[in-house]
Amino acid sequence: MQTELEHLIQMANQIVANNSFQKDIEQTAATTANHLQKFWARSMKKQIIDYAAQDGSDLSPAAKLAVQQLAS
């Protein structure tokens, strides 16, 4: 069974994948960050932000950037 964090990582990567057509990484990250901001609960945001800060290796580059933007 997937852990909560694994699931969050998968979801973030999936949002990126569905929003990257003909966009550069900056644009995709901005769209993704906006989606996370609007639809994710505080606890979900916090976990993914912590993860991106400490490790983040399973996040796609755009997802990682998005999470960093979310943190700032």
Partner: peptide, 14 residues
């Protein structure tokens, strides 16, 4: 801030 959706609630419960 938005809250948890059903699948997120399940993850958070576990």
């Amino acid at each position: 801030e938005p809250g948890l959706r059903i699948p997120n609630m399940f993850d958070a419960a576990i």
